[in-house]
Each structure stands twice: as C-alpha cells, then as structure tokens.
C-alpha cells in the first residue's frame, strides 16, 4: 500500500473506552476487550458489557489469526481516501476470538482475494505516532 505524502492521515478517536485498544498497537499488540464477569469478548470496545451490563473489563491479547469475511477493492480515486493510492484493498477479518476487524491486506491482488482466505496480523508503522494492525495471507499447515 502506498500512502500519498501531504494528505492528512485519518486517525482513530481515542477516548476512555477504547484507549487500551489503540495504545496497544504501539507495542505491536492486538488486544480485545473481555468482560471479566461473563467472559464475553467484545469489539469495538464498549463502556459496558452488552450481555451482562458489567463495567469490569479486561484486555486480552489476540492470536492475530483470522479469515477474510468480506472485502472490497478501491479502484476509482474520486471515491477513495486520497491519502492512499488506488487500487487498495480493505478487508473485514473474522478473528479466531470470534470478533471482526476492518483492516487492509498487503501483498495480495484483487484477483487473488476470496472470502475465507486465512490471514495473520502484522503491524504497519504508518507514521511516528500511528501504528496500524494490518493483515497478510497466511499459509495453513495441513
């Protein structure tokens, strides 16, 4: 993926509910919220567990493994984020923890993409203060 210099990077909004998620990326960790009370794993981070209304949450580190649930390719520059050169692929990854995540996939072309493709996380240091979890195709041992 090629970023266009000079176009502002779009960054996450970090608040009290989600800061652990975003700050973990700097240490190259992907974490998800887990309800301490009922054990439900949640993404996106929430202030309260929707299953039991507990506000006691912990953060667990993800295995980083998942499969492609859906994807789309940006081919037309006027209907795309100008900070990334088209074509680029956005994927919806289903993680082994059972939660989903939006991200990019690298080193794969649009023609090679398919739903169900196994992927694994890596961390892309986009700028000094922004590291994003992204995905690569993963070889599955038979």
């Amino acid at each position: 993926m090629e970023y266009v210099k000079g176009v502002p990077l779009l960054r996450p909004y970090i608040d009290y509910d989600n800061q652990e998620f975003w700050l973990a990326h700097r240490e190259e960790k992907l974490v998800f919220q887990k309800c301490t009370y009922c054990g439900k794993i949640i993404h996106r981070p929430k202030p309260m567990c929707p299953a039991c209304l507990s506000t006691d949450m912990e953060w667990i580190e993800s295995t980083g493994l998942g499969t492609i649930y859906s994807w789309t390719t940006f081919v037309y520059d006027r209907a795309a984020y100008p900070g990334i050169r088209v074509p680029y692929i956005v994927v919806l990854v289903e993680m082994s923890e059972g939660v989903r995540l939006v991200s990019n996939i690298e080193d794969v072309t649009s023609e090679e993409m398919y739903i169900g493709m196994p992927v694994e996380v890596f961390f892309d240091k986009v700028s000094d203060d922004l590291t994003l979890p992204k995905f690569r195709k993963r070889k599955v041992k038979k």
Binding site: D15, Y16, D17, P47, M48, L53, T55
Partner: peptide
C-alpha cells in the same frame, strides 16, 4: 469524571432502569 459521554449515558440509563425495576 474521566469517563466518555457514552459511558455516562449508559450508567445513567442503567440507574434509571434499576430505579424502575426494568432491564434493557
């Protein structure tokens, strides 16, 4: 209060539900 507005809203709604004797 060091909480997001969303969390404050959820807590106030939970208090109101508890006060009434209802669930979400």
């Amino acid at each position: 209060c060091k909480k997001t507005e969303l969390r404050m809203a959820c807590e106030a709604i939970k208090d109101a539900l508890d006060d009434a004797g209802l669930t979400p």
